[in-house]
């Protein structure tokens, strides 16, 4: 069972979960909305991509890589868009940040 892809996959997933944990702690500890957003959008995207990559290594079939890639793409784009919208809603109208 301890082949290279499985070790690599487990490592990647662990790293991804670490990213997500850091993001969660940041969300909890940081003082204001914009810095919380900053933490969430970036660390989440990175964490999820690492988890997906790890999962792809673990399964190793092309059929599972397509949905995983789709997951990463959708989370990345929706995370970015939602982050933008939330930031916009708190920025004073007309003000550029």
């Amino acid at each position: 069972m301890t082949t290279l892809p499985s070790v690599l996959g487990t490592g990647l997933i662990a790293a991804g979960v670490g990213f997500l944990a850091v993001a969660a702690i940041g969300f909890w500890r940081l003082p204001d909305l914009l810095s919380r957003l900053h933490v969430l959008t970036k660390a989440d995207t990175a964490g999820l991509s690492l988890v997906a990559l790890g999962a792809a290594c673990l399964t190793g079939t092309p059929a599972s890589i397509l949905p995983l890639g789709l997951c990463v793409l959708l989370t990345a784009i929706s995370g970015a868009t939602v982050g933008h919208l939330v930031a916009r809603s708190v920025t004073p109208r007309g003000g550029r940040s």
């Binding site: 789709l70 793409l73 959708l74 784009i77 929706s78 970015a80 868009t81 933008h84 919208l85 916009r88």
Partner: peptide
């Protein structure tokens, strides 16, 4: 109006 930043989102999400 949500601004044009949302357009790519909708354009990708709808076909998917």
């Amino acid at each position: 109006s949500l601004g044009e930043m949302t357009l790519p989102f909708a354009r990708i999400v709808a076909p998917i």
